[in-house]
Simulated scan of single mutants.
Amino acid sequence: MKRRKFLLATAITLPTIGFAQALPEAQERSKKGFVVKANASRFNETTKLGGKSPNDIKVSAKDTNQNLAIFEYVGNEKGGPPLHVHLKQDEVFYIVEGEYLFQVGDEQFNLKAGDTIFLPRNVPHTFAQLTEKGKMFFLFQPAGKMEDFFRANAALSGPPSPEQGAKLFADHEMKVLGPPLKF
């Protein structure tokens, strides 16, 4: 009878031990909050997309053990990125100012100030700013390589060729699938 209980306990316990070993190791996290002021970024760096539109890190992957990154984008021109897919991140956008057209899969959505949209990973998407000025907060979960993507994009001296753009996206766990939205 003791042997049967031992075997039963072992059979029940082994999957739990295996599951616990598969969990990521707990990371030491800061116990202090922080403030990032208006018109500033987390590390006081300037990242302008297209040389015109600030894209500031507000919460860094470094702050969250790669679990989350939050950005504030101030759009100073119409348009947006090519149709693409994130292989490892979900994305959320909150519109503060202006009007945007989003495509998620086969659906299109018009968003204005106060609207929020969720874009699941592995679903093709893009957006276009429809107004001369726009502002939005957006986040990636997990953070992935998105901070480095925006830094590399901002370092370009001009718009990348389609081949350069595809490589830039691929180097940061994304894939370009088509052109930007026409509006």
Results as ranks from 00 to 15, higher is better:
residue 179 P to A: 14
residue 133 K to I: 15
residue 172 H to S: 13
residue 58 K to Q: 09
residue 45 E to A: 09
residue 83 L to V: 11
residue 42 R to W: 06
residue 100 Y to P: 03
residue 171 D to F: 09
residue 88 K to R: 14
residue 140 F to C: 01
residue 90 D to E: 09
residue 124 P to S: 13
residue 61 A to Y: 03
residue 146 M to V: 05
residue 119 L to N: 12
residue 46 T to N: 14
residue 137 F to T: 07
residue 138 F to A: 01
residue 170 A to T: 06
residue 49 L to C: 14
residue 59 V to I: 13
residue 91 E to F: 02
residue 125 H to G: 09
residue 86 H to C: 05
residue 57 I to L: 08
residue 166 A to K: 15
residue 86 H to R: 05
residue 163 E to D: 10
residue 72 E to Q: 05
residue 131 T to K: 08
residue 166 A to C: 02
residue 57 I to G: 00
residue 151 R to Y: 14
residue 103 Q to W: 06
residue 72 E to R: 11
residue 175 K to M: 11
residue 114 G to Y: 02
residue 79 G to N: 02
residue 143 A to Y: 00
residue 126 T to I: 07
residue 72 E to H: 11
residue 172 H to M: 03
residue 165 G to Q: 05
residue 97 E to C: 05
residue 180 P to H: 06
residue 74 V to Y: 15
residue 73 Y to F: 15
residue 141 Q to C: 11
residue 107 E to G: 12
residue 160 P to G: 07
residue 124 P to C: 09
residue 104 V to D: 11
residue 57 I to M: 09
residue 54 P to D: 03
residue 127 F to N: 12
residue 62 K to S: 03
residue 176 V to R: 13
residue 105 G to V: 02
residue 104 V to H: 05
residue 123 V to Y: 01
residue 41 S to D: 11
residue 136 M to S: 08
residue 64 T to S: 03
residue 145 K to M: 10
residue 56 D to Q: 14
residue 163 E to I: 13
residue 90 D to H: 10
